[in-house]
Simulated assay, not measured.
Amino acid sequence: MIDHMGIGASDFAASRRFYDAALAPLGYVPLMEVTAEETGGYHGIGYGKDGKPAFWLGNDGPRGTGIHVAFSASCRAAVDAFYKAALASGGRDHGAPGLRPHYHANYYAAFALDPDGINVEAVCHAAE
């Protein structure tokens, strides 16, 4: 349903460090960058895999902390690695890795707040 989404950052460099580190264990990497010179002001990084950027980080300021973004993880170890990298790169704890059986029996997730307070999640739906 959703082709891509974007968020803005108040400190683009700090947020880029956070997302570069936190998304790497999930296999999401910067795939495309557009500069302010190219666009007339907007600087953005498109993260994704398989050649398609689906999550964009921009320099156009935070759009609100009511945003929640959940990234798919291939396994529980990737969720754990996401959480560790997120906290090590400026994120704040918003829910340690673990099962959330109130969603479903195999819902394994971790949550971190990015530098602007956006709730970022990594989730694995596999049984193990």
Rank of each mutant, 00 (worst) to 15 (best):
I7N: 04
A122W: 00
G90L: 10
A77C: 02
S74V: 11
L113W: 09
R76T: 01
Y103M: 08
N59E: 01
A81L: 05
S10M: 12
F55K: 03
F71G: 00
S89D: 13
A14L: 07
I2L: 14
M32H: 14
L57N: 00
R17C: 01
A85S: 12
A86E: 03
R16A: 09
E38L: 05
A126N: 11
E38S: 08
G8V: 07
Y28D: 01
A88D: 13
L113D: 07
Y83N: 00
G66E: 06
S74D: 14
T35M: 07
N119L: 10
A126L: 07
L113Y: 13
G51W: 14
A73L: 09
W56H: 14
A96P: 10
A73T: 02
W56G: 00
P62Q: 04
H94R: 13
A70D: 10
G44R: 06
A14G: 06
R16N: 06
R92V: 04
A54Y: 06
H43C: 10
D3C: 03
T35Q: 10
M32D: 12
P30T: 06
A21Q: 06
K49S: 15
P115R: 10
G64L: 07
V123M: 13
M1E: 09
E33Q: 14
Y42S: 13
Y42N: 10
R63A: 10
D50F: 07
N119Q: 13
A70R: 06
Y42R: 13
G51P: 07
D116M: 10
Y103C: 04
A126V: 05
F18P: 02
H102A: 11
A36C: 01
I67N: 10
E121D: 12
H68F: 03
A13T: 12
L31K: 10
Y107G: 10
N106A: 14
R100F: 04
P53W: 07
G90V: 01
G41H: 12
T35D: 04
G98L: 03
A122V: 04
K52Q: 13
N106M: 05
G44Y: 09
H43S: 13
D11Y: 07
A21I: 06
Y47M: 03
T39M: 14
L87K: 08
V34R: 15
W56I: 02
V29M: 12
T35G: 11
A22N: 09
Y108I: 00
T65L: 02
G58I: 01
V29E: 15
Y47P: 01
N59D: 11
P25K: 09
A22T: 02
I45Q: 05
H94E: 15
G8T: 09
F12W: 13
